[in-house]
Amino acid sequence: MTMRTRPAGLLLAVLLSVSACAGDADPEEGDSTYKPENDVTVTQLRVETTAKGRVAKASYRIRNDGPDPLTYTVVLSFLDTDGNAVTTRELEKRVGNDAVYEGTLKVPWSDRSASSGARVTDVSIR
């Protein structure tokens, strides 16, 4: 009786093909390690005095490296010197595919409060 064996190269090609398909998971289907909060970065925070009082300004960047336009809903927290959230603000921005949007969010800031920064506390996409 003659036994036929498949070449090891064919088995390797099949395994690599299955592995490559798993890497192409759709982030919106929840089956990948993609996290939308990684698309949003606070790039600068400054506290300024204006004619109407002090304001905190957080500059941010939203980067959409995906193939489709996405609408981002972002929550930014403005922090006191101890790192606690003093106030939060929500913004919504549509960002085109393979595009970057940069903006600034302003909030009134108490004369007595110093700031240690701002952070992204929540991001959702649709």
Rank of each mutant, 00 (worst) to 15 (best):
K57H: 04
V95G: 09
R126F: 01
T81V: 11
E92T: 09
L79T: 10
L10C: 02
V86G: 03
V55P: 04
I62D: 07
T121W: 03
Y101G: 05
R126S: 07
Y101T: 15
A22N: 03
E28V: 05
V47R: 01
T2I: 02
T2N: 02
I62L: 10
T5S: 13
A99M: 04
E48G: 00
S77G: 15
L16F: 13
Q44G: 11
L12N: 01
Y101W: 11
A20K: 00
Y60W: 14
T43K: 05
K35I: 00
S115E: 02
D65P: 15
T50Q: 04
L16V: 13
G9E: 05
A8G: 00
T88G: 15
A25M: 02
L10E: 07
S32H: 08
T33I: 08
N38D: 05
A22R: 08
R61V: 11
D122R: 02
V100Y: 04
R89Y: 11
V18Y: 04
Y72C: 03
K35Q: 11
T49V: 04
D24W: 06
R89N: 10
S113E: 15
D39L: 08
N84W: 08
D24G: 09
V100K: 03
Y60L: 11
E48T: 00
V18L: 03
Y101P: 01
L105R: 09
E102G: 10
T87P: 05
I62G: 01
R112L: 14
D31K: 08
D68A: 06
V95M: 00
D68F: 07
R4Q: 05
R54N: 14
S124M: 02
V55T: 08
A114T: 14
L15A: 14
D24Y: 12
R4G: 03
R94V: 15
P7F: 11
A114P: 08
G9D: 11
D98A: 01
R61Q: 05
F78K: 15
V100C: 08
T81A: 09
P67M: 02
T33V: 10
A99G: 02
V123S: 12
G23K: 07
N64D: 09
R4F: 10
K93M: 08
L11R: 10
P67G: 00
V18T: 05
G30M: 09
T104P: 01
A51T: 12
S110H: 07
A118F: 09
V100P: 05
P27V: 10
V123Q: 08
R6H: 01
T5W: 07
E90W: 00
N38M: 01
K52H: 07
I62E: 11
K57G: 00
A99N: 02
D80I: 03
S113L: 15
S116C: 02
D65R: 12
L76A: 10
D26V: 08
L105D: 15
E29G: 12
V86K: 06
E29H: 06
K35A: 12
G9M: 07
T121R: 06
Y34Q: 09
A25Q: 07
S19R: 00
L105I: 14
A22I: 00
V55N: 04
K93R: 14
E28N: 12
A8K: 14
D68M: 01
L105E: 14
T33L: 05
V14K: 04
L76P: 11
